[in-house]
Amino acid sequence: MPLALTPVHFFSHGSTMMLGEQSESADYWKQCGDEALARGIKGVIMMGAHWDCVGPNRVQVSMNPSPGKSPVAYVHPSKYVDYKLVPDLETGNKCIEMLAQDGFEVTANDKFDWIHDTYLILIRMFPEQCPPTTIISLNARFEPHFHMRVGAALRPLREQGYLLIGTGGAVHNLYRNVWQSMLKYSDNFAQETPPEDWAMEFRQAVEDAISGNSGPHLRRAITRLMKHPRFRDAHATDDHFMAAAFCAGAAGSEDDSGVYGKLEAETWELTNMCNSQFTIGAYA
């Protein structure tokens, strides 16, 4: 049955150990992958958090026909080394054309090797076989409206059966995590104390923005979160929040009015890292 419109996922990929340890988030990623396969998606378009390019209006599209994998710390190689990546060069060219038509300075990158922020999610969603996948870079200015516009430019791909995913973090400040249990005992889920107030407050602000806004209001709510008084506590760097802006662009047109996102799973790591998993919309 042809797809009328695919949902958009904003996933918080968390630490590298999210690839090696079972969690509520991992279960939800697998659920989303199973549903995507059952619905016959054509491929996946992803924006992560660990690849950016320099230039005021520049964005890149992964076009390496045989990408390698950047190594993953604290995870046994058996969890990822044999997983075969499937770059979608045809759709990559389509993304380049769409972004260029929307005024972006877009180029192909045929040397880019994939990083755990994207293939961690793909392995969890599609453990048997990677679907055809295209990765879009960040822009190193980390301007939220820019990344929202990237998502908006690619939104028509949802009508063609592609699944758009942003993989970053709801609360992701490595400097304020509590690392001892992970480093000493390989326990990333240890929670000897509650999360700090700043983490709880911003986590709630993200959920409120996504669950309480739709259409263009969603775009405004997400980009405005970078002015939240707790944003800098929750994000020491801006890179992991750009995926949320990308998703708001992809799911925030006038035609998306009335379609609200939902918090579907959540996993706290390292005391203060909140890995919230959101889905906006549903398969028609």
Rank of each mutant, 00 (worst) to 15 (best):
P2S: 09
L5D: 04
V8S: 02
H9S: 12
H9A: 11
F10T: 14
F11C: 14
H13Y: 13
L19F: 01
G20V: 07
G20W: 00
A36G: 05
L37R: 13
A38R: 14
R39P: 04
G40F: 03
K42I: 10
G43E: 03
I45E: 03
I45A: 11
I45D: 02
M46G: 05
V54R: 00
V54H: 10
P56W: 01
S62V: 04
M63C: 12
N64R: 08
Y74C: 14
V81L: 07
D82V: 11
Y83L: 05
K84N: 07
L85F: 15
E97Y: 08
D102L: 06
G103V: 00
G103L: 13
V106N: 00
D110H: 10
K111P: 06
W114L: 12
H116W: 13
T118I: 11
Y119N: 04
I121W: 13
L122Y: 07
P127S: 12
P127M: 09
E128M: 11
C130T: 08
T133E: 00
I136P: 02
I136R: 00
S137R: 00
L138T: 00
N139M: 05
A140S: 10
P144V: 03
P144T: 06
P144C: 10
M148L: 15
G151L: 01
A153T: 09
L154D: 05
G161F: 04
Y162E: 01
L163F: 10
I165S: 01
T167R: 02
G169N: 08
Y175R: 15
Y175L: 14
R176Q: 07
N177P: 05
W179I: 14
S181L: 11
K184N: 12
Q191A: 08
P195N: 09
M200H: 05
M200V: 09
Q204S: 15
E207N: 10
S211G: 06
S211D: 02
R220P: 04
R220V: 04
I222W: 06
R224E: 11
K227C: 15
K227D: 14
R230E: 14
F231H: 06
F231D: 15
R232L: 13
D238P: 04
D239E: 10
G252S: 00
S257N: 10
G258K: 08
G258Y: 07
Y260P: 03
K262G: 11
E266D: 14
E266I: 08
E266G: 04
W268F: 10
N275H: 04
T279P: 02
T279M: 02
I280S: 14
A282Q: 15
